[in-house]
Design a binder for these strands. Sequence first.
DNA 1: CGCCCGATGTGCT
DNA 2: GCACATCGGGCGT
Length: 204
Amino acid sequence: MPVNTNPSPILSHRFYNREVCQVARDLLGMRLVRIFDNQRVSGIITETEAYDGQNDLACHARRGMTKRNAVMFGPAGHAYVYFTYGMHWCLNCVAGPQGYAAAVLIRAIQPVEGIQLIARRRAPALPKNYTNGPAKLTAALVIDGHFNGVDICTKQGDLFIEKCRAVPASLVSTAARVGIDSVPEPWRSQPWRFIANLPQGWLA
DNA sequence: CGCCCGATGTGCT
DNA sequence: GCACATCGGGCGT
């Protein structure tokens, strides 16, 4: 029998309506849940990145509101899903107050439920590579542009994050964000990438 | 209107 | 380690 798969409280708008780095840090260890064909497909969040408003030159909102990034300017607790490199979808959680364009990119999860579906979606990749990248996990959980703007604080949207098990500071490391080499300092080097180094048995 | 390039992933060398 | 897929956004002409 799988363990640690009992549905838990869904993270509320209050959780997301905080400083974006705090939200990114606290999302580690929480469980991203996608309801697909009435089945739960989920994973523990192990890596995130914070993008902090128009001043942050790595943020999609740096040049102001556009059709693509509009959701980032809306209320916290909604999904900002964008298309990139002509083929990939990436999932973010809008954070902070309405009008302030901040979001947390979900970069990696550790599969928990619906592993059969995930394996089908990701084959022929090796299991360790099923969901260890922002576009890999959206492919695995069947998340695309249809979810842009969806409220992730209710199960009605078939996409939400549950409180699971908080990760202690001793297991969290930070680093510069990925793929923003052309962004000027200090933004390029801000340690706004959060990584959970979960030991074997964390999910048991 | 055209050009550049991106919060990436994959497969091949 | 590296080239390349693949296309929309953003900006310059």
